[in-house]
Amino acid sequence: MKDSAMPANVPVLRIENIKKRFGDKEILKGVSFELNRGDIKAIIGPSGGGKSTLLHCINFLTLFDEGHVYLNGIEIDHANKRELYAYRQKVGMIFQDFNLFDHLSALQNVQIGLVRVKKIPKAEARERAVAELERVGLKEHMNKYPAELSGGQKQRVSIARALAMDPEVMLLDEPTSALDPELVGEVHSVIQKLAAGGMTMILVTHEIGFAGSLAKEIMFMDEGVIVEKGPPRKILYEASQARTREFCDKIIHFHHREDDQE
């Protein structure tokens, strides 16, 4: 997975025809898309549509039944463990409920992957971890444990933790949906900074305003398929599929109502 010599036209991440069933229920019915370097794509869609399952399949936390995943044009063989672990470092994952390591301080959360996975000496790893926490504005909280941090701070630690592994792509699964409304902004601004720095990202979200401002393309996903994709304006206001229009109308109205109440 050497990427330096790759020609510019090879997508960083390409997934092809991913299918996944749980029992007799087909959750993903053949999903394909690709991301070029610096691309930000958002996935929206109703609950249960398979968005989380898709992200989990992309880094093989869930094994899919059919399909292929390519990083910089090279197919990932998950049976080759060494390759899989190297690949996962390249694809940072942000979870809805953070999944911080509860027994470790913020600093140790960021440091441990560097020490255990990348085998970087402790002192150097610590320096790197402090720098990552500084990037997300949490240097002064670095010795706190997850139980002592707010939801927004936890999510920022988890972003720092993923960034420390030096990923080429970030997968964000509803990064702010577990947060109190007043904490959403701090996480959004960290993600915006990432975007400004040119990070390639897939963002699953219900915050269509945020998705629209950030992503070049929005994909609407329902019942295991990408029903429709296109530039935010088109998907949100002039979708061609009835399903997409219905969903977007509903959440746009919902957001307006929320705005009215403020």
Partner: peptide, 13 residues
């Protein structure tokens, strides 16, 4: 389960 997923997502076996 998230503790395991979090670790695996960083490249832990």
């Amino acid at each position: 389960e998230g503790q395991m997923l979090g670790a695996q997502s960083l490249g832990f076996s």
